[in-house]
C-alpha cells in the first residue's frame, strides 16, 4: 500500500506540474484514526498530502459536480470509477470529462466494526500488510484486516478500475469473499411482514440529515424530491411513513445508476442499513435488462431506454 501511495503522489505531482489538470481530488489523513478526508490539490507540492489506505471510504465522484468548469483528476476505486462512467452516460461532464486516477482497491475497513472489537477509545490505527494495529490508552491489539471489511467491499467484484486513465496497482482477480450481497439474501429470506418491519425499524431511526444523499455521486439533482414544495411529495416530518417514503424513493432513484460503493451507508450517523436496498435494485436491472452500472461505457441507463421485447408477464 505504501507503494501505491508513493505512485499516487508521483502521478498527481506530474499531472499538476504539466498542467494536464487544474485540480486533483484525493484522500488525505485526518485528525481521527480510521478515517481519511477528501483533499483538493491544486499545486504539485500539494501531492505530498495524498494518502492511500483502507480508510479511503468516500466516493470522490460525488465532488465532481462542484468543479464542472475545471479539468479535474480524481482518485477512484473500482466502484467510484463505475460511478463516473454512469455520470458520463448521464452527460454530466460536457466540457471536461474527469481524468480518472484509478487505484486497484484492497477492500475497505469498516471503522465501526473495529470500534466494536476493542474496549476504549482508539487513538491510533495503522495498517501493516494484512494486519491492522490498533492502539488506545490502555490497549494495543493487532487485528486481521479482512475480518473487518465493509459488507459492500466483501462482495465487491469490481476492485480494478479498468475505466481509469491511469491505473495504479496491478489488476486483481475479481472474486467476492462472500455470497453475493449477503444482506439482500438475508433480507429476502424473511417473510413480507418481517421485511417491512425490518425496513421500517431501520428507517425509523433516520434524522433526515441527508448525509446519505450528499455522499452519493448520483444524487446531484438541483432540487431533490424531498425539497420540492410544488408539488410537495413528502412532509417534513419524522413519521415512520415519511421516513419510509424518503428511503424508498432515494433508493429507487438509484435504479440502474448505483455502483454499490456503499458511501451512503457509511455516511449515515445512525448506522442505518441502506445498501441492501440499492443492491437489490442492481440485481433487478441485471436480471431484467442485463445491465450493470458503469461496466459498459456506451450502454444507455436501463430506465432511460427500453426494448419492445422487455419482460411483461406482470401486466394484465
Amino acid at each position: 500500500m505504501a507503494m501505491i501511495q508513493k505512485k499516487l503522489r508521483e502521478k498527481t505531482k506530474e499531472l499538476l506540474a504539466k498542467k494536464e489538470v487544474d485540480l486533483v481530488i484525493g484522500f488525505s489523513d485526518w485528525t481521527l484514526p480510521l478515517r481519511t478526508t477528501p483533499i483538493f490539490i491544486r499545486t504539485p507540492e500539494g501531492a505530498e498530502h495524498l494518502v492511500w489506505n483502507s480508510f479511503c471510504e468516500n466516493n470522490l465522484a460525488a465532488y465532481l459536480h462542484k468543479f464542472s468548469r475545471l479539468k479535474v483528476g480524481v482518485v477512484v476505486k473500482g466502484c467510484d470509477a463505475r460511478s463516473v462512467v454512469a455520470l458520463n452516460l448521464e452527460k454530466r461532464f460536457p466540457n471536461h470529462p474527469p481524468l480518472l486516477i484509478g487505484v486497484v482497491c484492497q477492500r475497505l475497513v469498516d471503522r465501526k466494526k473495529v470500534k466494536k472489537a476493542v474496549k476504549g477509545e482508539i487513538l491510533q490505527a495503522v495498517e501493516q500488510g494484512d494486519l491492522l494495529l490498533v492502539k488506545g490508552e490502555n490497549f494495543e491489539v493487532s487485528l486481521k484486516r479482512d475480518d473487518f471489511l465493509y459488507p459492500s467491499c466483501q462482495s465487491c467484484t469490481h476492485r480494478t478500475p479498468h475505466q481509469a486513465h491511469i491505473l495504479i496497482g496491478d489488476p486483481v482477480e475479481e472474486v467476492s469473499l462472500v455470497e453475493t450481497h449477503p444482506e439482500v439474501g438475508e433480507f429476502e429470506r424473511k417473510s413480507p411482514e418481517e421485511r417491512w418491519d425490518f425496513f421500517e425499524k431501520e428507517t425509523s431511526r433516520c434524522l433526515r440529515c441527508y448525509a446519505c444523499r450528499e455522499a452519493c455521486p448520483m444524487c446531484y439533482c438541483g432540487e431533490c424530491f424531498v425539497d420540492s414544495s410544488r408539488p410537495k411529495w413528502i412532509e417534513k416530518s419524522l413519521s415512520p411513513s415519511d421516513l419510509a417514503f424518503y428511503h424508498i424513493v432515494r433508493a429507487y432513484h438509484q435504479t440502474g445508476r448505483c455502483s454499490g460503493c456503499g458511501a451512503c451507508e457509511r455516511a449515515c450517523p445512525m448506522d442505518i442499513r441502506l445498501t441492501y436496498l440499492t443492491q437489490k435494485l442492481n440485481q433487478e436491472v441485471k436480471d431484467l435488462y442485463g445491465f450493470e452500472t458503469g461496466i459498459q461505457p456506451e450502454a444507455a441507463p436501463p430506465l432511460s431506454t427500453f426494448d419492445p421485447e422487455d419482460q411483461q408477464g406482470f401486466i394484465k
Partner: peptide, 8 residues
C-alpha cells in the same frame, strides 16, 4: 419506457 419503471 413506463413498463421498465413499473417492473422495477
Amino acid at each position: 419506457a413506463g413498463r421498465r419503471k413499473s417492473a422495477t
